[in-house]
Design a protein around this nucleic acid. Structure first.
Length: 114
DNA sequence: GAATTGACGCGGC
DNA sequence: GGCCGCGCCAATT
């Protein structure tokens, strides 16, 4: 495969891949958009992850989008104020700790392969 | 079909 | 530590 970018040749399957990866995130752990994009095979299309989650359909797949945060370990806004607070609360309920700046220690709660 | 937008990441200053 | 510019793919206008 000469193509370094796995995203080349892929179709609308990208969304399903993203959701599949997000669902793989274990409880009490969080993953960054870039990490999800990479594992999903989108390379560095971190924006796609955010866009896919934003367009998260009501398929009832129960995708734990709350475990997906940006590289700063922060919760991204989605135009709906309050939702961020809900997301933070969900993560705290899973054991994820936030600091005074609403940031998560990716070094501890960051999703790793092992 | 081109331009714009969209829940971002990283390198550089 | 923060701000700026570029890159990434897909959907919408």
């Amino acid at each position: 495969m000469s193509k370094s970018r796995a995203g080349v040749g892929v179709k609308s399957k990208s969304y399903e891949r993203i959701w599949a990866v997000v669902r793989r995130i274990p409880t009490g752990r969080v993953a960054t958009y870039g990490q999800v994009a990479r594992v999903a095979g989108l390379g560095g299309a971190a924006r796609l992850v955010g866009y896919a989650l934003h367009a998260l359909p009501d398929t009832g797949k129960r995708v734990p989008w709350q475990r997906v945060v940006n590289a700063q370990g922060r919760i991204s806004a989605r135009g709906f104020a309050g939702a961020e607070q809900v997301q933070r609360r969900l993560l705290e309920r899973e054991g994820v700790r936030f600091d005074a700046r609403e940031r998560i220690d990716l070094g501890r709660f960051g999703w790793k392969k092992g």
